[in-house]
C-alpha cells in the first residue's frame, strides 16, 4: 500500500503529543484495575501496550482521554493536566465543556469501531470537526474526503457503515479520529474484531500514521506489527507495567518471567527472534 506523504502533520508533530502518566490508580468497586502505572510517551513516539486480557490496558487508554476518571495519580498531555486544573495547591475538576475540548486533541479508535450506523462514512467524519471544533462545514467535508482517500476509501464516501466490511469500517473510524488533527491517537485492539485477511489493511493505515509523526499508543495482539512499528513495547499485567523496552529487547530477551510466559503463549515458535 502506498503511504501518502503527510507534510503538515509531520511538521507540527515534533513539538506536540507528549503524554505523561504518573502513578495512576483506578479501582472498580473492590477490584484495583490500575495499580500505580507510570509511563511517559515522547512526541511522535509509537508505543505498543501488550498484556493478557483483563490486565487493565483498555482502562489505561480510557484514562488518557478521561473517559475514565483516575482515583489517584495524574495524566498530562503536553504539560496540560487531563480532566483537572491545578490552582492554589488543589486540583479543580474541569467542566464538561473543557474536558470535551481536551478530548479533541486525543483521537481514539475502538476495537468494535463504534461508527455511527445511521450516518454515512463522510458524515461520521464530519461530525466532530464541525460540532466539537466549530470548523466550517465545507472545510470539514473537504478534509473528510482527503482522509477517506488517505485510508483508501474514496469510493465509499456516502456509504453507511453496515454496508462496509470490518476492515473498511475500522479505516473510516481511523479517518474519523484523524479529522480532529489529534496530537495523540489511542488504539484499543483495532484489529481484534477483524477477519485475519482484513487485519493487514488496517495495520497499513496505522503504520503510515506512525511514519507521519503523530504520537500513537496502541494496544494490540499483533506481534509482527509491534516488532516492526513500535519504538517501545510496554508489557502490562494485573494493573501494573511489568516491563518496557525496545521491541527487540522485549521479544528477544524479556527480563521478567510474566513477560516470557505471556510471549510464549501468543507468539508461535517460528516467529521467535
Amino acid at each position: 500500500m502506498n503511504s501518502p506523504a503527510l507534510p503538515a502533520v509531520a511538521a507540527a508533530a515534533a513539538t506536540r503529543g507528549l503524554v505523561e502518566i504518573s502513578n495512576v490508580h483506578k479501582s472498580f468497586g473492590q477490584v484495583e484495575v490500575l495499580r500505580g502505572v507510570s509511563l511517559t510517551v515522547e512526541p511522535g513516539e509509537v508505543v505498543v501496550i501488550l498484556g493478557p486480557s483483563g490486565s487493565g490496558k483498555s482502562t489505561l487508554l480510557r484514562t488518557i482521554n478521561h473517559l475514565e476518571k483516575v482515583d489517584a495519580g495524574h495524566i498530562s498531555v503536553d504539560g496540560e493536566l487531563v480532566g483537572y486544573r491545578a490552582r492554589g495547591g488543589k486540583l479543580h475538576e474541569l467542566r464538561e465543556k473543557e474536558i470535551l475540548a481536551q478530548r479533541t486533541h486525543i483521537g481514539m479508535v475502538f476495537q468494535n469501531f463504534n461508527l455511527f450506523p445511521h450516518l454515512t462514512a463522510v458524515e461520521n467524519i464530519i461530525e466532530a470537526p464541525v460540532y466539537a471544533q466549530h470548523r466550517p462545514y465545507a472545510q470539514a467535508r473537504e478534509r473528510a474526503l482527503e482522509l477517506l482517500e488517505r485510508v483508501g476509501l474514496s469510493d465509499k464516501v456516502d456509504v453507511y457503515p453496515r454496508q462496509l466490511s470490518g476492515g473498511q469500517q475500522q479505516r473510516v473510524a481511523i479517518a474519523r479520529a484523524l479529522a480532529l488533527d489529534p496530537k495523540i491517537v489511542l488504539f484499543d485492539e483495532p484489529t481484534s474484531a477483524l477477519d485475519p485477511e482484513l487485519v493487514g489493511e488496517v495495520l497499513d493505515v496505522i503504520r503510515s500514521l506512525a511514519d507521519s509523526g503523530t504520537t500513537l499508543i496502541v494496544v494490540t495482539h499483533e506481534m509482527g506489527f509491534a516488532r516492526d512499528v513500535a519504538d517501545r513495547v510496554v508489557f502490562m499485567d494485573q494493573g501494573q507495567i511489568v516491563e518496557e523496552g525496545a521491541p527487540l529487547q522485549i521479544f528477544g530477551a524479556p527480563r521478567h518471567e510474566r513477560t516470557k510466559a505471556f510471549l510464549s503463549k501468543v507468539i508461535e515458535p517460528a516467529f521467535n527472534l
Binding site: 482521554n65 473517559l67 464538561e96 465543556k97 470535551l100 475540548a101 481536551q102 478530548r103 479533541t104 486525543i106 483521537g107 481514539m108 475502538f110 468494535n112 463504534n114 461508527l115 455511527f116 450506523p117 445511521h118 461530525e127 466532530a128 460540532y131 466539537a132 471544533q133 474519523r176 479520529a177 480532529l180
Partner: peptide
C-alpha cells in the same frame, strides 16, 4: 442504543446536546 455510541461521541468531544439529538435519538 449501544453504550459504545455515546462513548465514541464523547471521545470525539461532541457536545452533550448534539450527542443526544444527533447520535443517540436517531438511533
Amino acid at each position: 442504543v449501544d453504550q459504545g455510541q455515546l462513548e465514541a461521541a464523547a471521545a470525539l468531544g461532541i457536545p452533550a446536546w448534539r450527542r443526544s439529538t444527533r447520535i443517540v435519538l436517531p438511533q
